[in-house]
Design a protein around this nucleic acid. Structure first.
Length: 380
DNA sequence: AACGAGGGCAACCGCTCAATG
DNA sequence: GCATTGAGCGGTTGCCCTCGT
């Protein structure tokens, strides 16, 4: 497989982009679309390699990206999807449509990973570092099957993310995400489209159902064992014990994240400022293309709302305020709220069924997130 | 005020995969 | 089926800024 020389050519500029270069790139893409990235620099009059142009466009100049601090909900989404998908930043980015994979990756590496690490959670496996619990073999068959299901689901997510990317490359790439999403839904996934809110992650749901159903049956007996062998292909989050503690710790994370946004996920002030800066910058270099209307109308909502939820009917949003409920759900798993506990007993430190319940909440929150996406969501 | 350390982020590098001839 | 090319992804680097001393 021959490697293309690409950026090795002499005379090509590297390093930070200047406003002039940005302006050239934007002007060209707005007029012609990017077409072949390799050919673009010459046509646009840039002394850059195509790869550099693509990166600059996708990570910075693209009009449909949101900049500024990550909201609480975005953090939650990233953490949970990372637990599910591992370092598949592009797949994770499809759930945060206005964030780039690079931005998410950077944010994970510089903020979230460290925070999890400080809390004694392995950011790779999402398990407590001192997790010494061993699995019993009582449910190994179920665990194995479910592991395959999880693996399948993970692969499917990845494949769908790929399809989304491909759909974005189609001619007329300036169309909005929603248009693309509809296109995607109608051409690539008719079955899913017609399947209603539960069409997605059915396997994961089944996984949840079986695991937690079993958990209730055998509560307190092989509680640890079920999850012990249950490992997703990309991360070992799925350990019941691990997730249990992770979700508890996650609540702590949520609480401690007030440095970046307030408890309600508010990010208005700083984000608005940065948004304004970006707008001014775009104005400064003569970008005339307006931002998508959904970005223009309100700068940012007081609480971040996933784009995938915009315009969605309540059919997909079982709670009136998804963000609030989602956060409540997570927060409720700590601070002694044991309303989900079967036996009503206080089983501290994750013993007994609390592990199941914490895990259930953890995964249910992911399912809620997933299922609350509208039918034309690129992924679900 | 000057300096060093650490953090954050944009950009680059190298690999993999898919498409094409 | 193989070689080549192009695009995209994830890991890494290096610059710049902020903060503490």
């Amino acid at each position: 497989m021959g490697r293309s020389p690409c950026c090795d050519k002499v005379g090509l500029k590297k390093g930070p982009w200047t406003p002039e270069e940005d302006q050239k790139l934007l002007a060209y893409i707005e007029e012609h679309g990017h077409g072949s990235w390799r050919a673009l620099p010459a046509k646009a009059g840039l002394q850059r390699c195509g790869k550099s142009c693509r990166l600059r466009w996708t990570n910075y100049l693209r009009p449909d990206i949101k900049r500024g601090k990550f909201s609480l909900q975005e953090e939650q989404t990233i953490i949970q999807l990372h637990a599910l998908l591992g370092n598949r930043w592009s797949a994770i980015a499809t759930h945060l449509p206005k964030r780039t994979d690079n931005e998410i990756k950077n944010y994970w590496n510089t903020h979230l990973k460290k925070r999890l690490d400080k809390m004694g959670i392995d950011p790779v496996t999402h398990k407590p570092k001192n997790d010494t619990l061993v699995s019993s073999d009582g449910q190994s068959k179920n665990a194995a099957n479910l592991s395959h299901m999880a693996q399948w689901e993970s692969a499917r997510l990845e494949a769908e993310a790929r399809l989304v990317r491909q759909s974005k490359l189609r001619p007329g790439s300036s169309t909005s995400y929603q248009t693309q999403s509809s296109e995607f839904a109608s051409t690539s996934s008719p079955v899913q489209k017609s399947a209603g809110p539960s069409r997605c992650l059915d396997v994961l749901k089944a996984w949840n159902g079986v695991v937690w159903g079993k958990a209730n049956e055998v509560a307190g007996v092989s509680a640890v064992g079920i999850g012990g062998d249950l490992e997703s292909p990309t991360s070992t989050l799925s350990s019941a014990a691990g997730v249990g503690e992770s979700s508890t710790a996650f609540v702590e994370l949520v609480r401690n994240s007030s440095g970046t946004c307030d408890g309600g996920g508010t990010m208005k002030d700083e984000s608005e400022g940065e948004w304004k800066n970006l707008t001014e910058y775009r104005d400064g270099i003569g970008i005339s293309t307006p931002f998508p209307s959904e970005l223009q109308e309100s700068s940012f909502p007081s609480a971040w709302e996933p784009e995938s939820m915009r315009g969605s009917s309540t059919e997909h949003v079982p709670c009136g305020n998804f963000v609030e409920k989602f956060t409540d759900l997570l927060l409720s798993t700590s601070s002694g709220d044991r309303r989900f506990s079967d036996d009503g007993g206080e089983s501290d430190n994750g013993s007994g069924s609390d592990y199941y319940e914490d895990n259930k909440n953890y995964w249910n929150s992911i399912l809620n997130l997933v299922n609350s996406s509208p039918s034309d969501s690129p992924i679900f």
